[in-house]
Design a protein around this nucleic acid. Structure first.
Length: 289
DNA sequence: ATCCTATGTTGGACGGTGCC
DNA sequence: GGCACCGTCCAACATAGGAT
């Protein structure tokens, strides 16, 4: 499936693109492109990969990514079932860094905007009131035409550049080392892990998908994701378990065994190392919100 | 919660291959 | 030749799962 999320064909005659997505699931391909991207999820749940960040996404999730930052909004597995009625809906805006023209961007008045664009190279998750306002404005921009839509995008970027309500997604140490030719291989790996993380997955079988030996693949994977294979797998499993604990109100043991863990002791250990809380504490903290 | 241990994973050192 | 990429070997380390 090719959707607007994968390609970003901004026609040479246009300053930017804003479009609504409404599909059975979001584009399942890990990829990157030279455009900035502002993406809000309106409907759907899954796991969001941005650089070396792995987090769950749900409606309202608003993320701003910079040029060539690899990303993927992977819908949950139930979205890929043939007769599923589930929908993945969102609004995405793409623009180039020269969208305002370098003449303006280099001036003092655009200082905070330049800072924003630098931060976006790590990926920004927009939070709180800023997120709520930007989501409204993104919805609004779809109904605008001509220069009015450009003004609205400038308003959005201005609001983003003035806000402190954000989290940086990728870690300081992350930089994209992927080449275009790597994305097919990494997508096979991603697909396999996302389809099978609830069972045992061995490095060896994933390495085979990449046509590499386990040793080479281990190094290759770490160099491109900034995580070891085990860390990566563990974060996906814990993300899934967190969802089960909160959204399905499952018991800790149930969530553990349905997320690819085979012992509670290991599950508790991994959970705490990622969330800083035990599964029970995490569940209680959420229910008190 | 903590410890123990078999097993799996990681990454350094080094070498081979293909490409520019 | 220089470089990128990957394989092999192997020691060190990390982890999973079981025992207490």
């Amino acid at each position: 499936m090719k959707t607007a999320l994968q390609k970003s064909p901004i026609p040479a005659t246009q300053a930017f693109i804003a479009r609504r997505l409404d599909d059975p699931y979001f584009d399942p391909n890990w990829h990157f492109h030279p455009e900035y991207q502002l993406f809000v999820v309106l409907e759907g749940t899954g796991t969001r990969f941005v650089g070396d960040s792995i987090e769950r996404f749900r409606p309202g999730d608003l993320v701003f990514t910079g040029p060539n930052l690899p990303h993927l909004w992977r819908s949950d597995q139930e979205y890929f079932v043939g007769n599923s009625n589930l929908r993945a809906r969102g609004v995405v805006i793409y623009f180039h860094d020269n969208f305002l023209g370098s003449a303006l961007l280099e001036k003092n008045e655009a200082f905070s905007l330049r800072q924003l664009m630098t931060k976006a190279t790590k990926g920004l998750k927009i939070l709180g009131e800023t997120s709520r306002r930007i989501r409204q404005m993104m919805n609004g921009i779809l109904g605008l035409q001509d220069f009015e839509s450009v003004i609205k995008l400038m308003e959005i970027l201005h609001l983003l550049s003035q806000s402190t309500e954000y989290d940086l997604l990728s870690s300081d140490g992350y930089s994209n080392t992927l080449k275009r030719s790597d994305t097919d291989r990494m997508n096979r790996v991603h697909d396999h892990i996302m389809a099978h993380f609830q069972q045992r997955i061995k490095l060896e079988e994933v390495a085979a998908l990449a046509y590499m030996t386990p040793s080479s693949f281990s190094r290759y994977f770490k160099s491109h994701t900034n995580k070891t294979f085990s860390q990566f797998l563990s974060e996906i499993r814990i993300g899934h378990a967190s969802k089960l604990l909160i959204e399905k109100e499952m018991s800790v043991a149930e969530a553990c065994f349905k997320s690819g863990f085979y012992t509670l002791s290991n599950f508790n250990r991994q959970f705490k190392s990622i969330h800083g809380l035990s599964p029970t504490e995490y569940k209680q903290a959420y229910l008190q919100l």
